[in-house]
Simulated assay, not measured.
Amino acid sequence: MKKTEIDTLIDSYFKWLKENTSSKIINDTWSEITTPYLDRHNDCLQIYAKKEGDKIILSDDGYIIDDLKTCGCYLDSPRRKEILNTTLRGFGVLLDDNQLIVKTLAENFPQKKHDLIQAMLAVNDLFYLSKPQVQNLFFDDVVAWFDKNDIRYVQKVKFSGKTGFDNMFDFSIPKSRKYSERLVQTITNPSKENSMNLVFKWIDTKDERPAESVLFAMLNDSEKAIASQVNEAFSNYGINVVPWSEKEKFVEKLAS
């Protein structure tokens, strides 16, 4: 894609974000911010903000963890606690009595708001661990497959995007003599919402990486087929789709 096309896409993304974000004061302390990002129920994520000295406290008011529990997904086993804590640390988010919280100065508010929303989406996706047939995390399956095929990688890498926001990807595979830098993102539940979140992240990051960098979306299709609209969205933005059932076709591109 040309630079002008990327700039236009980023501008349209910002316009969409602004037009679909609203706020209201709910009491003398807290304000409610409604975002256009959707959880798995297709409800808009809401966060809450209050001033505390020279800092701003941002919280999900316990919504994400409480919703997981209501739906039968408990994160109280040692392994699931480890997954939750690792996820939150990656975004710099704290867990306080089931609330996801960040504290920030006013000048860092945009980045920290972005981090909290991304953490809420990531933890929300842990719901799919509650299904009995899911014996291992999809992420762990991918790590094991990488190791089996001698694919070199760095886990959980952050890159600053054109917007100035940090974006996290599951894996980075260094450039080789044959291939350019490759980023890999795993998606346990390849829904339309999750695919668009990755598209926005890639649009923001692409121009800040080496010119030939590519992104692979590794999608879990073990329980259901990948929807055509998901494949189309990734194709339109030059993202390589790797269905888990067809992963062996991509060994050479990732390992070389």
Rank of each mutant, 00 (worst) to 15 (best):
K206R: 11
T188Q: 05
Q99T: 09
K192H: 07
E52P: 02
K15R: 08
G62V: 04
D170Y: 03
Q111E: 15
I101R: 04
S245M: 08
M120Q: 06
K81I: 06
V143C: 15
R209I: 13
T186Q: 01
Q111F: 02
K103N: 12
E193V: 09
F171H: 02
T205L: 13
V241K: 00
K51R: 12
V199I: 13
S245L: 10
E82N: 11
R80E: 09
G164E: 09
E208G: 05
N167V: 11
L121Q: 10
A233L: 11
Y13V: 04
K253H: 09
I33D: 04
N189W: 04
N189P: 00
H114Q: 06
Q118D: 10
N98K: 14
E193R: 08
E52M: 06
S77G: 07
I117E: 01
I10H: 04
D166Y: 14
T21I: 06
S222Q: 12
C71P: 00
D28S: 14
L94M: 13
A227L: 13
F159V: 11
D96A: 13
I25M: 12
K156F: 05
Y74I: 11
T29Y: 01
T188F: 02
G72P: 01
F127A: 10
L58Y: 03
D43E: 13
E107A: 15
R40L: 08
K69G: 03
Q133M: 08
T87V: 08
D166G: 07
S77V: 05
G90H: 06
N42L: 06
A106K: 12
I47E: 00
T34P: 05
V142N: 02
L198F: 01
Y48K: 11
Y128N: 02
I101H: 04
K247Y: 03
I56Y: 03
R80L: 13
V230G: 02
L183E: 02
Q229M: 06
F216L: 04
D97M: 09
V251D: 01
I6V: 12
A122P: 03
V154I: 06
E193Q: 10
I226L: 02
N124V: 00
T188Y: 01
A119P: 05
V214I: 12
N240S: 12
G72D: 07
D96M: 11
N240P: 05
Q46S: 11
F169K: 02
N220E: 10
D97R: 10
L9I: 08
S245K: 11
V251E: 04
D54E: 14
G92C: 08
E193H: 07
M120S: 08
V143A: 07
N220K: 09
K206H: 13
D66I: 03
W30P: 01
P78W: 09
R89W: 13
R152H: 12
D221A: 08
N108D: 14
T104C: 14
S77M: 09
Y13C: 04
V214N: 10
N220G: 07
T8P: 00
I56K: 05
D67L: 03
R79D: 10
E52L: 05
K113N: 10
N149Y: 15
Q46F: 03
I6T: 07
S180M: 05
W16R: 10
